[in-house]
């Protein structure tokens, strides 16, 4: 009888252990469901956010790709101003050159105009916009003159980008 009982004890022992393990695993799995959902949801949100950033990066890449056509260096602002505004009215205040993305530098120029026609200012802005690379207006401060259509004093800050000599 003893000989017969031993396999039975082993079978039932193993059955008990496997059922207990199964139950514990089931409890563990059930407890883990909401945590897993939380994790996946967070990662999905992160992926969405990163996808937005990737779109942004792609836009930057497109801008840089378009900028490849710029020649090295830029047309000096004074040269543009010479064709649009009277020379005596312009005074160069400051020039600031800083590195931009690799292979490019950013140039910021501050100029002051005195007693200038509003239309001349407009011509300068248009000429800057179509230059290659373009000169972009960043800031301006205008004080009107007594004469309609004229500006007593105008302080303008322009920026442009220049391909560095190593090329991009």
């Amino acid at each position: 009888m003893k000989k017969n009982n031993t396999p039975l004890i082993i079978v039932w022992g193993a059955a008990g252990l496997s059922l207990l393990a199964g139950l514990l695993l089931t409890v563990h799995s059930l407890n883990g469901i909401s945590r897993t959902q939380e994790i996946l949801l967070k990662k999905a949100n992160d992926i969405r956010e990163l996808a937005g950033m990737r779109s942004q990066a792609n836009r930057y890449h497109a801008l840089l790709t378009a900028a490849v056509q710029y020649p090295a260096g830029s047309i000096p602002l004074e040269t543009l101003a010479r064709t649009t505004v009277p020379a005596q009215s312009m005074r160069l205040l400051a020039t600031d050159i800083t590195p931009s993305v690799p292979g490019w530098t950013a140039k910021k120029v501050s100029v002051e105009f005195t007693d200038i026609a509003g239309t001349d200012l407009g011509k300068l802005l248009d000429a800057g916009a179509i230059a290659n690379p373009p000169w972009t207006l960043l800031e301006c401060t205008l004080f009107a003159a007594a004469t309609p259509g004229r500006v007593a004093k105008a302080t303008l800050v322009f920026s442009t980008v220049e391909r560095s000599s190593a090329g991009n």
Binding site: V11, A15, G16, S18, G22, K43
Partner: peptide
């Protein structure tokens, strides 16, 4: 006893597969 053992093992297997699948999904993501 064998039936209970088989049930217990099956329960363990189902849970292991479920946990593995969940972990795999997390890893993939």
């Amino acid at each position: 006893g064998r039936a209970c053992l088989a049930s217990g093992l099956l329960l363990c297997l189902v849970n292991v597969v479920w946990l593995a699948a969940a972990q795999h999904r997390i890893s993939e993501t």
